[in-house]
Design a protein around this nucleic acid. Structure first.
Lengths: 277, 277
DNA sequence: GGTCATCTAAGGTCTGACCACTTATGTTCG
DNA sequence: CGAACATAAGTGGTCAGACCTTAGATGACC
């Protein structure tokens, strides 16, 4: 690349290698075109998640641009969750999980209220349960049972709300995954992340863990029975129940706050501040 | 910045141990932290969409990093739709519209089957229509009507399937937006993008555009009547109808392919190859 | 007063060097 | 021999400074 072709360079600029690109009419910044080219490269060579692609320096030569441009293009692709750049190792096609993580970072900043999240839980998780009832393999159902039992044991052992929530999230994620719809699974992942980040888990509420176990048990049983109708109903009940608990807590917190406005609540437990970032 | 700092040079190179970088334990790359700082800067100074923020060189000084790092951070923020960088003008806080546009460019490249996408359309769009029936403002409904009429005119004028699809997508996007659930709107945006990318629009099928207009008309009318039940039913009918059309096309394409396996189909009309990406 | 050359600010790109992380390969020592 | 350490090569991360292009403002000229 880089044929001499010193265009209408104004200053003499004799010293350094007088390159001159053929930009011309292209309003599109270079790094954008580079990003497109890299994307095409991935598709064209049929690279799958995890596959490594040429290093930055190699891409420079391949595309005839500077490393800075390649890096900016890579940064864009990385932010979009298409590639994963690993220091010292190289550039790789991102896995679905990495893509989801990127996507979740994408949505942040746009705050979504609790009501909206619960509404979406119903929209997504009810069909997920229904589909999983017929689409899941026996082996997957066994995994589900195992996850449920771990959750049950954790509740009996009075583990921390955070731990319980992680298991709860895993259970719902598995159901979504077993529903055999990749878009649904992806969306559920994002939803779960947002739930964890934007509100305190309802499992910190007195009595919720035990009740949650019963409700999950209903769902799992329906799935084992391959009964889609019952699974949907159980999922819906579970979400409604959690939603009511969350609303009650909000109401009581608000009432308390109104009563004792200036207090530090230096209590020994709970009360994590709502996530910043 | 940039004190001499020879650092723990690998080769003999001697030199004083000197400070080597304040990095130390932080595994986080610089440009990521810079992106965070810029994000905080926006929030901290209460900048709104359209406001200009310091130029690249100014940010360098402000944050004590090189321009390359600032630019990579900016690229990331830009991809996430938080800022808009304009050549010759400066860096600005992105508007919501610009954020959405960035989002569309997002999910591509992850393949999801047609059946899965239609299933998700039903999952998302049916509730969206129902919520929009009660949540949309009168003004929003007027916008919707305008969009619908544009689509109708375009169909009457026999515009290209691609154009029709763009309007169709806009209509559904608006409905999702007017449902007052930001998570739903976000998800619908991604879904729409994936639909456009991963399958030929059903609007290229003979007879579909006219039928699609009738179906959309049903939805819009139900919304104007603020009838959530009817809106949901109309949305469901529309999706089922589109799905059937898509399935029929797939079946007929498959049948044709089986009959005349080696032909160039140099016909004058239709028959675009299914997206190769 | 309008048009066009010029200047300035700001983003876009290139170059080349050096730093930091990973990994594989040797080398040394118990 | 085998494990711990040292070295080297490959790759992303960062810096520095130079120059180009675009957009807008300024001001001279007709």
């Amino acid at each position: 690349m880089s044929q001499d072709a010193a265009g209408p360079s104004p200053a003499g600029a004799a010293g350094p290698p007088a390159v001159g690109w053929r930009w011309m009419g292209s309003a599109e910044p270079l790094f954008l075109r580079v990003a497109d080219q890299i994307e095409r490269y991935i598709a064209g060579n049929g690279l799958s998640p995890g596959n490594r692609l040429p290093g930055e320096r190699e891409l420079c030569e391949l595309l005839g641009v500077s490393r800075a441009s390649v890096r900016e293009a890579l940064r864009s692709l990385q932010t979009r969750g298409l590639v994963a750049v690993r220091h010292g190792k190289g550039v790789f096609v991102a896995s679905a999980a990495e893509g989801e993580r990127a996507m979740q970072r994408f949505a942040r900043l746009r705050e979504v209220g609790m009501e909206e999240l619960f509404a979406m839980r119903e929209v997504l998780e009810v069909p997920a349960a229904g589909w999983a009832a017929t689409a899941a393999t026996d082996e997957q159902l066994q995994q589900l049972v195992a996850t449920f039992e771990r959750l049950e044991q954790a509740v009996l052992a009075h583990r921390s709300p955070a731990e319980l929530q992680a298991m709860d999230a895993q259970l719902h994620l598995q159901i979504a995954e077993f529903a055999s719809n990749r878009f649904l699974a992806m969306t559920q992942t994002v939803l779960q992340e947002m739930l964890a980040r934007s509100m305190d888990t309802t499992l910190a509420i007195a009595g919720r863990p035990a009740r949650s176990v019963r409700e999950h048990s209903d769902i799992v049983e329906a799935l084992l029975a391959r009964d889609a109708i019952r699974a949907r109903a159980a999922a819906r009940r579970h979400i409604h129940s959690a939603r009511r608990a969350a609303l009650r807590r909000v109401a009581s917190e608000r009432a308390q706050a109104a009563l004792v406005q200036t207090r530090d609540t230096a209590g020994p437990s709970a009360s994590q501040p709502s996530s910043s970032r």
